[in-house]
Amino acid sequence: MSTLKPIVSKIDHIQGSDNASIEIVEYGDYECPACGDAYPILKEIEETFGHQIKFVFRNFPLQKAHQFAFEAAVCAEAAGLQNKFWEMHDALYENQYRIAEGIFEELAESIDLDLEKFKLDMDSSAVKDKIEKDFESGVRSGVNGTPSFYVNQAKFDGGVADLYQMLKESSE
């Protein structure tokens, strides 16, 4: 059984309550269609289970398969440096169908980022290192495709619909 390595810490992007009993970690790629399909269902899970859920996103861009995956990950991390990681994360998935050259600044503008700082951070090697580290942690944790989910640190062998089902059953 593969487990999450390293465990969730302050350097991660975390949504939801610290005291949540269920921790879901997604390894995802902003250009991956299956991750795009999972996005609204994850939102529904967060709404349904509220404070019981803590949701964490780690980057797993498949750069050779998806031309803009790495840049999109950089874009979300750069927004994170202005405390708007989740706004950008959502904007990227909501606009996944039109991800292409030039969209990143447009999205940055749409969520009111400081554009000068955003542009500098898009080139930052610290941001790129963070994404590489996320990727490596994914490989170590046994990620075998995107999206991959971990529930309370254990790899969940199934898609997002199976995840939803499992949570529903365990809360009954």
Binding site: L62, K64, A65, F135, E136, V139, V143, N144, G145
Partner: peptide, 13 residues
């Protein structure tokens, strides 16, 4: 395909 796509990303490792 997913498996091969993953290895493709890992060549540098």
């Amino acid at each position: 395909s997913d498996q091969m796509a993953l290895y493709n990303e890992m060549l540098k490792y």
